[in-house]
Structures are given as C-alpha cells and as structure tokens.
Amino acid sequence: MITNLHQPKFSDAAIRQFLLGQLRRNDRIAFERALFCDSSLEQRTRLEEIALADDYATRRLRDKDLNAFRQTFRFTAARRNQIEVSMALNECFAPLADAHRAQKSPMFKHPVWRWAVATMILIMLFATVWLVMKEPQIVKVPRRFLHSNAPVTPTPEVAHHAEHATEPGAHREELPPAPSHEAALDVVVLDSTVSAENAPTVTLATLRDKYHLQLMLDGTSSATFLAELLTSRGDLIYSQELTTAAGENRVSFDVSRDRLVGGDYQVRLTRKPDGNVKTYYLRVR
C-alpha cells in the first residue's frame, strides 16, 4: 500500500477537469490519490461540483464541457439533486426573461451565429449608406409622398391637395412650387361624428391663404346650409351660406387664413329646410 504520497496542488481548473473526466491518465491517478489524502482538496472538489451544477443550470458550460458533463456528471443521485437545486436557485433569484430568450433562440447561443448576424447587419448598413450616396434622390421619397394628392375619404384627416389635380389620388413625381396663393389650398375633411378631443389638426402655413373645409353629410340630396365658424367657446367668427348639388355627400366651406389663429374651433352646419344642426371640430396650430 502507498503510504507516503506526493500531494500536488491542483487548480480549480484541474478539479473541474477531474469532475468532467478530462484529466490525462497520470494526472487523474495523482488526483485520485490526493483526493483520499488531502481533505482540503476534497472540500474544494465538493464546492467545484456545486459550481459545475450551477454552470450547467445557467447554460454557461461550453460545448466540450457540456458533453463531458452529460457523460460523466449526472450519474449520481446527489449530483442530480445538486442540479435540481441549482436550477431552483436560478429560477428563484434570476430573472426568467434571459433564460427564456436563450431557449427560444438557441442559434444565438453559438458565437458563430452571433458573428454572422452582426456581420449581416453591418453589410446592410454599409449598403444603405452606399446606396444613399450613389442615388441621393432616394432620400426625397418621403417628401414626395407628403406632397402627393391624398384621396378624399370620409374619415377625418388632414390632406394636402393641389386645387387643379386632374385625378384624385393620382401620383405625381414632383410638385412644382405653388404659382400663386390661390392655386394652393389645404383641404381638411371634417366629420360630425368625430369628437372635439379627436378633432383633426391643421397647421397654419404661411403660403396658404384659404382652408378648404369639407363637411361630411349624412345624405346626398340637394340642400342649402348655413355654415358658421365658431371658437371653442361658441363665438361666431365667420358664416357662409352653402348649397350642395344632388349626389354630393359633403359640402365645401372655405375659410380664409386670416380668420384663423392657433386654437380649437367648431363649425356649426345648419340645414336650412329643417333646421337640423351638425357640429364639426377642428384644431389649428
């Protein structure tokens, strides 16, 4: 029997290698003997065993260690219980979101995938910058959309129209600058079913001198109306008599810009024959 043993110092990494069965034969034999003679090594090995279970529970083991762990570590009841406790501790004290994310996207666990995704994002970024530099007109696209004719819809919205647009909704490449003040109007579609809180907002533009309010009607029969522009408190600013032709579901009410300042307004529309009143709300900024 061996009684006088050389007791080498083993690092934490060596202890971990022992637990995972990764020590070379000679080192393993030396470690096994030391484990029987050195109680401090035994204590450290017990703690490393727990640390290993923790790392497994939190998916921090590298692939090589993970395989070794599965082949050597889990075959004792005590260790299985250690893993159980590690998982319970992590679930109790660690936020779950990260673990769930890792479960749902296992590809991101692998560094190769992370690099691939990062590279792809960079390539897309450089391609976008290159394209914008090569084709600068691309950046004008949003402005074109802003200036294009919006179709008149029954929903409350603020639409910018050219007065002489040939076809509603027709797309035009580039609007020329407004030739005169008369040529450009802001069209605002108002609906009496929209409450004051949800009223459409009109931004006062310096080049506009008229705002073309389209008041949506219930019916399409010909009628005469009295349209009154009022402040939110009910003070009359301007009124106008309007007539609709048969088949029209809206009536146009033009308001000159100098009658409007920033604030909340209402338009009271009274149908002449029967005195039926509808109220439309509008915000001006």
């Binding site: 393993r28 090995t45 065993e49 009841a77 260790r79």
Partner: peptide, 19 residues
C-alpha cells in the same frame, strides 16, 4: 467521506453506476 470520494472518482472515470 470515503463513499463520496469513491463515487466522485468512479463518476470521473465515466462509470454509469458510480454509487
């Protein structure tokens, strides 16, 4: 302690039934 050491060694050797 001895039992724990035996189990640890057998497990590290890849034994499926260390206990």
């Amino acid at each position: 302690k001895i039992r724990w050491r035996l189990i640890a060694i057998l497990a590290s050797r890849g034994c499926c039934v260390p206990e």
